[in-house]
């Protein structure tokens, strides 16, 4: 498909909406990805996904709208992790893994026990960026912008907590509150957007740009700025690539992101060897 044909496709509202949402998510969600990577919250991402599935299963079993139940279950999950995290220290790996396994077990138990079709609940997690309504697009873009404003306003405190929670506390930062806030932001981002843009695309725009910026940047400010820049670039190129060879946008963005990560890692490795 030629570039002119791709541009022509943007005249269709679903394609244009999808492109705008992809670029907004691709540019601003990497800010959350920086926290996921730096605070070692990868397992939290899976725990949130599994508890969203549990929420969807409970919602469908009870005949309720699944999204509010998913949100509610995830709020309880983050609260549980935050409370238990205070008891066991800053490394949340064990707790999030525990919840990750528990929630998927409960989800399948609910699906089986109440005869909820698994496809109905799983379908809520596999969003499609080209199937978004106008309202979905506004919610996703608005949330992406909200994240950027939040990071800008709270940057000094967030930077301190990212660097070292104890030192942040002694500098007067409410580090426990900020850390819990970060957990909620990560959980909310995943819950809200997974159903809209899909789990694969969410991972691609959340994690990959933050990983790439972690290799290329020399400063904390640079880490955030470069994560956004790479996120934008990967989303744009991935979108064009996906349309060009007729594959899902999520696959296109993920492939481009993975290739860029591989390339910068290789260059960094060669530079270190010759330094």
């Amino acid at each position: 498909m030629s570039f002119t044909e791709i541009l022509a496709l943007l005249q269709y509202p679903p394609i244009m909406r999808g492109a705008l949402v992809l670029l907004a998510a691709g540019t601003f969600f990497p800010l959350i990805g920086v926290f996921v990577i730096r605070l070692n919250l990868i397992t939290l991402r899976f725990a949130v996904m599994h508890s969203a599935l549990l929420g969807a299963a409970i919602g469908l079993a009870a005949g309720l709208s699944p999204l509010p139940v998913m949100m509610g279950v995830n709020v309880l999950l983050i609260l549980g992790i935050a409370v238990l995290g205070k008891k066991v220290g800053p490394n949340l790996g064990h707790i999030t893994t525990f919840f990750m396994v528990l929630t998927i077990g409960l989800a399948f138990a609910v699906l089986y026990r109440f005869n909820v079709p698994a496809n109905d609940s799983l379908g809520l997690l596999w969003g499609n960026v080209f199937a978004l309504t106008r309202f979905d697009a506004i919610v996703t873009i608005g949330f992406a912008l909200f994240i950027m404003v939040l990071v800008l306003v709270l940057f000094p405190k967030l930077a301190a907590v990212l660097y070292d929670r104890e030192l942040a506390f002694t500098a007067g930062v409410p580090s426990g509150l900020i850390h819990t806030g970060i957990l909620f932001a990560v959980g909310l981002t995943i819950t809200l957007t997974m159903g809209l843009i899909g789990a694969l695309l969410l991972d691609a725009v959340l994690i990959l740009p933050a990983l790439i910026a972690g290799v290329t940047s020399r400063s904390l400010r640079g880490l955030f700025v470069q994560a956004m820049a790479f996120g934008f670039l990967i989303s744009l190129v991935g979108f064009v690539f996906a349309i060009g060879i007729d594959i899902p946008a999520s696959s296109g963005v993920t492939i481009v992101g993975a290739l860029v990560l591989g390339f910068v890692s290789l260059v960094s490795h060669i530079q270190r060897r010759h330094a």
Binding site: P156, A159, A171
Partner: peptide, 13 residues
């Protein structure tokens, strides 16, 4: 990735 100046600035967070 954090510069020395950014580490010092943590004290003013």
């Amino acid at each position: 990735p954090i510069t020395a100046a950014e580490v010092v600035e943590i004290g003013l967070a």
